[in-house]
Design a protein around this nucleic acid. Structure first.
Ligand SMILES: [Mn+2]
Ligand SMILES: [Mn+2]
Ligand SMILES: [Zn+2]
Ligand SMILES: [Zn+2]
Lengths: 143, 143
DNA sequence: TATAAAATGACAACGGTTATCATTTTCAGG
DNA sequence: CCTGAAAATGATAACCGTTGTCATTTTATA
């Protein structure tokens, strides 16, 4: 994901910030992730290849990535936030199993349209939304 | 509101717990609320008529009310949780203005049906869901 | 009224995140 | 390449909403 790193560096330049080894290290590990990862977990993974990088820096980098539109913070009912890669056309919502923690991502344009309708009806302009369905996955409900 | 208190007392009896002045005081103020209120705010309001009641007890009572199905905790992107009255047929979702904080409640059965569809498609049995639309209210978007 | 169980209030502790600050690093200009 | 101003880092303390602890009080049952 060299292009992702390039996107980050472009954002950094645009904002007059600076490229650092730490930012690249954190971003690289983050972009290599598939699912949702907490700051603490990311910190641990980064530490393997780059010991010495502080948890604070991981938090700061995640915030930077979020501002740059490359990461998104999620909150699935737990106090600890998790992050995932963000991309204009990667928007999705989540199904969360409250028993085993399994998370399924889905996209449902027809629901999104209806959300727009509802918002319009109340005079709102929607900029973001959150939809989470909590329940039991197949494995957990048949056990 | 007397019936709400009665509901609470019924739940308390069923669980072998005890009716106390504090619980009644907190519940009364809570049930008299219209919108969403934080534990801290509720604590302040309760203090006016019943000084001496601790914040801890307010938290405990809110948890009790939630277990009894009479209150529901909400989180609108801020660290501080807020509570609102709960009722089987009072389910609704929220439109939140990110500028002025205005919150509009709405109910959209067709969306709820589609949520069920999506869940079924992935083998999930939904027990709860969260849908929040963030954006600008009419006042804020035309200013 | 005696008794066991539960609730209370004061306070400490928790956990995830952010602020502070001395030190180090980056990078534009010379 | 240097130099210097601006920004970033890491260690640590602080923050803040919430929950745990525990001695004391209150409730409800018999
Ligand atoms: Mn996701
Ligand atoms: Mn509501
Ligand atoms: Zn499951
Ligand atoms: Zn507004």
């Amino acid at each position: 994901m060299a292009n992702k790193i390039a996107d980050l560096n472009r954002y950094i330049a645009k904002k007059g910030l600076k490229v650092t080894r730490q930012r690249e290290a954190v971003a690289e590990v983050f972009f290599a992730e598939k699912g949702h990862i907490s700051a603490e977990e990311l910190y641990m993974k980064v530490a393997k290849s780059h010991p010495g990088i502080g948890l604070t820096t991981v938090y700061r980098t995640l915030k930077l990535l979020t501002e740059a539109g490359l990461a998104k913070e999620r909150r699935f009912g737990e106090p600890q936030g998790v992050y995932e890669k963000e991309d204009e056309d990667r928007h999705h919502d989540h199904l969360i199993c409250t028993r085993c923690g399994k998370i399924v991502e889905f996209k449902e344009p027809s629901i999104e349209e209806m959300q727009e309708d509802v918002a319009r009806r109340y005079g709102f302009v929607v900029t973001d939304h959150k939809m989470e369905l909590y329940g039991l996955c197949r494995t957990c409900s048949t056990a």
